[in-house]
Design a protein around this nucleic acid. Structure first.
Lengths: 208, 208
DNA sequence: TAGATTGTTAATCGATTAACAATC
DNA sequence: TAGATTGTTAATCGATTAACAATC
């Protein structure tokens, strides 16, 4: 239907809109203007209207946006209404932190499985989910309908975990290992390379 | 000296160059071309040359870039040679994961302090660093010369931690709480909002 | 020298901002 | 109605890509 390609910049802003709308909802707001959204997000109102207009007409002229309705629609654009099933591979410190990540719930994701290859970790329970052997990934992926695999293993094992996830037919990978992964085109990857953010901060404070 | 403003896009790529150069170095490469860098990073060689040229002339025409030299220079641009001192506030699951983050060392940062407000956590040792009470932040910041504060506390406490960090005269904040923080202009903030990446992944797999 | 590859200028492409008609 | 605010077109700004002279 909508054949226009949406820029990465816009897609990056949508989750921020969603978060801000959630907070506005918590504040009991019924209606919010692009101006107020812009103030809260430190973006121009024009940009927000432009972004939203790419997906439909969600506002009322002279009035603004109904908070509930817009939040629902932005959530739908982001596909959060699919309530994707998530599995985490690598239950080290980061894996544990992610397994306990509260925003999974707030964003509608379900944590359905945890995997590791260390016998000392397999069998443990983290946030009500039991850690399974990585060898069970294939069968679990099917039974539990895993949509997204999170890679939280050391860099040198990341590619082989990615291969296993691809073989298990997952749709997307959320990768925390600082390596460029090779996967088929139809598997989407989002890289969460923490060292980028930290190095960026270093750059900014270096000037002073 | 160099008065040109560097775009955020360029600054985001510099850490990736640095990482790739580090790997090339590990592979024993002496010289690398913008073409080869582009292949490894999935970027065009023109873009890489353009980015680097903003900071100086690091290559040899007809030859390429000396890996060691370029890595040194990119590291210097990013300010990694400052060996910034880092403190983490909030030693929950995420704080522990970050305290054990190996890339701190690879990038030249020093983990010098950990803080929490939970008496059950204060006094524990994580990655050879003892967790102190948040009340000691002010005095420690001075003694230990803390440059960067990492916020790994729940969203509702993030702003007050930021205020304390600002008061303690740190230079930059690496913020993992999903909230927009208010700090003076001269304190730099980099937000590491994991829900953005995950929501983006949701968007990409929703189309299929 | 011939081949390769940088650094840089010019051309293109895309994203943001400005402006304003439509309308609640 | 008058005031407010959206949705959208046009103008501007910035970033990427293409091209090529310089030179190792």
């Amino acid at each position: 239907m909508k054949e226009q390609t949406i820029s990465k910049a816009t897609i990056d802003r949508l989750p921020l809109y969603y978060r801000t709308l959630r907070l506005a909802q918590d504040d009991g707001m019924d209606i919010i203007s692009s101006d107020e959204l812009g103030r809260r997000l430190e973006l121009t109102p024009e940009q927000i209207r432009k972004d939203l207009a790419l997906f439909g007409q969600f506002g009322k002229k002279g009035v603004g946006y109904y908070v509930n309705e817009l939040k629902f629609n932005v959530g739908k654009i982001l596909g959060l209404d699919n309530h994707w099933n998530i599995a985490i591979v690598g239950i080290g410190h980061l894996g544990v932190a992610l397994a306990n990540y509260q925003n999974f719930i707030a964003l509608g994701f379900n944590l359905v499985a945890l995997f590791d290859n260390d016998p000392n970790i397999i069998g443990k329970t983290v946030n009500h989910v039991k850690v399974k052997s990585i060898d069970e990934l294939q069968s679990c992926a099917k039974n539990l309908k895993i949509d997204i695999g999170v890679i939280a293993v050391p860099a040198q094992f990341a590619q082989q975990v990615a291969d296993k996830l691809v073989k298990a037919n997952i749709k997307g990978i959320w990768n925390f290992a600082p390596v460029k992964m090779r996967v088929p085109e139809d598997v989407k990857i989002v890289n969460e390379d923490l060292s980028v953010g930290l190095s960026r901060l270093s750059y900014y404070i270096t000037g002073k």
